[in-house]
Design a protein around this nucleic acid. Sequence first.
DNA 1: ACTTCTATTATCATGTATGATAATAACCAT
DNA 2: ATGGTTATTATCATACATGATAATAGAAGT
Lengths: 178, 178
Amino acid sequence: MRSTLAISRQLRNRRQQLGLSLTQLARRADTSVPTLSRYENGWSRFEVATLQKLATALNCDLVVRLEPRESQRDRPSSAEVVEQLSRLFWDTRLEASHLAENTLWVVERVLEFGSLDDVRILIALLGRAEFLSLVGDARIESARTRAFWQQMLDKEGVACTRKFSREEAASSWRNSSR
Amino acid sequence: MRSTLAISRQLRNRRQQLGLSLTQLARRADTSVPTLSRYENGWSRFEVATLQKLATALNCDLVVRLEPRESQRDRPSSAEVVEQLSRLFWDTRLEASHLAENTLWVVERVLEFGSLDDVRILIALLGRAEFLSLVGDARIESARTRAFWQQMLDKEGVACTRKFSREEAASSWRNSSR
DNA sequence: ACTTCTATTATCATGTATGATAATAACCAT
DNA sequence: ATGGTTATTATCATACATGATAATAGAAGT
């Protein structure tokens, strides 16, 4: 799944896209600044009710859906994908579970260091829509890589959702090293 | 959004589809029976971490996504939809917020009592994929209505996900009056 | 009748998310 | 430098979800 990292990233992207400060959003969503900051910085235990309030305040729909895995046919096996991508994870050991629970992290690694074949097998695994959506959430360090994916997203017409990533993201990427 | 009712419905559908008891699923997901029962019966404050554990135990991917509303173009306005559908809600007052936060409830009412035009404007509002997905989650009382939508879902090829609804749901619908 | 499995609900102790407040720091102006 | 805005983090009291246990009840089969 997209997992907690992806949720944090989406919240921050959307808030910055709307130009809201933490204080402003906290008031609009009837929540607190610390909670909001926690949600945007690697919080693992979100409450759906709080996410719902935030989504409304961010003029978004919150989608929470269970997608049965067996309905995802003609996709490569996790083992296959791990096999092919493992060389990109020199600093740790890529496990099958990471594909499901830390998808955004895997996607970011592949975008930054992977070959086109690596991208293809990821798309085969996730489906194009899900992959592109994750690309929109991803933090990409290299300017060249970023430019490439901006063009791809444009071509694919993921336009509306990714406006921020393409136009303003550079600045936010720069000062978010933590 | 699909909201809490839809989450409960999805959990129960999927668990019954796999033929698991509360006890079995609770053990597989490393959670407790009371929590599970609460989650399936109108709980409002889900934790994403718990949902994630349940999804894994149910062999599902958990999708949590913020969908910006302005990226949903050429859709009818909430006011329009409320205007057209309000006659179906004789016992209460349909508000625009219900469309976003109690979507499943609205869908169920339209499926049961609405005309084809009502269905059309709902599809225009939600998009076909989201609408069909909600139909799969919906509890439909009338056998005739249910048969109709089973055919529709078959035609539209929402096959895999909705297997349970079409084949076994009748029994679960019957004894879930509470 | 009787089990047996099931689901729902209650009670209660405990863990933890939340919100209020404040301290710190970074950034950007003037 | 100074002041203002912002984000992050800490502390702490409170609210609430969770899990353990058990009571209740229904359904299905013997």
